[in-house]
């Protein structure tokens, strides 16, 4: 099956999730006898585009950004649908993120395609097409059967390893036959997120719960995160109390993340919290209560006082890094 991926980028650089997506697409195309095409908007420089070829992309469709500074999901959906048709793709794949979630369902409607988000792993079978995805926020898995000729899917974060599978890759300019929709809205202010490591892309996440007792005590957590180059997160009560911004809340009703390493500090591990972190590769729990449910999900645990354990852990990490 021919696969089209949407290779989004941050200011010209492809994030890890897009390279994972390319590798996944290559594996899917390989299994079903087809090739991978990538749609790239704007103008990433050559060496960045080469990365796609190294991950198995045979053809890159290069196209100008469909809109000016304001993101319009209608325009992106029209562009993606047009590229899918032009490349004869029977599968359109996205990496997970706010833009994909805004665009992919519209593309599915346009292409009359069956849709699945949070997809994990290659299809269990091709005829009928059955794919596994997480449901109930990581508490279970479901197999979706897609019966339409075209499929639109979003790959779950951190669910596929990047592989070096270089292929000959051609670059074509792609001019979609679409007209930009009338804006009908106005962006009056933009705040770029800079500096801090983005929670959903982070390899390592340090997360704090009610066990830290007050928002004023976050320094020990920030120090640990700093020593690891980690992003910061928190449990729901912490965000509800206003100790930390709601953007940092991970759990069933907050963000769902899948880092390589997750530190749960002073988090008891309510089932709603576990839902948001259960796809993490390694979970470390630090809690004063040995009975806390978080220890049932963690790979490594320390029972102790956060205010002593965290600074000591930070020191141990710094020491190792300086060696």
């Amino acid at each position: 099956m021919s696969v089209l991926i949407y290779a989004s980028h941050d200011g010209g650089k492809f994030p890890k999730s897009v390279l994972e997506l390319a590798s996944y697409a290559f594996a899917l195309a390989n299994k079903t006898g087809g090739q991978v095409t990538a749609l790239v908007t704007g103008n990433p420089v050559g060496p960045e585009l080469d990365k796609l070829g190294k991950s198995g992309v045979s053809k890159i469709l290069l196209t100008p950004e469909p809109m000016g500074p304001a993101f319009d999901n209608r325009a992106y959906a029209a562009l993606l649908a047009s590229a899918a048709q032009a490349s004869g793709a029977s599968c359109v794949l996205f990496s997970d993120g706010a833009i994909s979630r805004a665009v992919a369902p519209r593309v599915a409607v346009r292409l009359q395609a069956g849709y699945a988000a949070g997809v994990m792993g290659l299809p269990e079978s091709i005829e009928p097409f059955r794919i596994r995805r997480s449901v109930f926020t990581g508490k279970a898995y479901g197999f979706v059967e897609i019966t339409s000729p075209v499929k639109v899917m979003i790959l779950a974060r951190n669910s596929w390893q990047i592989a070096e599978t270089p292929v000959a890759c051609t670059i074509e300019n792609f001019i979609p036959g679409i007209t930009a929709p009338e804006a009908g809205f106005e962006v009056v202010k933009v705040e770029e997120q800079t500096g801090a490591i983005r929670l959903q892309d982070a390899e390592v996440v340090v997360s704090g719960g009610r066990g830290l007792k007050s928002g004023d005590n976050w320094k020990i957590l920030e120090d640990l995160a700093g020593s690891l180059g980690a992003a910061m997160a928190c449990s729901r009560p912490v965000a509800d109390e206003g100790w930390r911004p709601h953007q940092e809340h991970v759990g069933q009703t907050g963000k769902v993340i899948a880092p390589n390493l997750y530190f749960a500090c002073g988090i008891s591990g309510a089932i709603q919290h576990i839902g948001g972190i259960s796809s993490s590769r390694v979970i470390v729990a630090i809690n004063k209560d040995p009975e806390a449910p978080i220890f049932q999900f963690a790979r490594f645990g320390i029972v102790g006082d956060l205010f002593q354990v965290l600074p000591a852990l930070t020191q141990a990490i710094k020491k190792l890094k300086s060696e």
Partner: peptide, 23 residues
């Protein structure tokens, strides 16, 4: 529609947590 769930599964049990001395 053209996408529907056909079966489900529960996640595999995680291996036991390895405890480490806080000191």
């Amino acid at each position: 529609g053209s996408a529907a769930f056909v079966k489900f599964e529960n996640p595999a049990q995680r291996s036991k947590c390895r405890m480490i001395d806080p000191a």
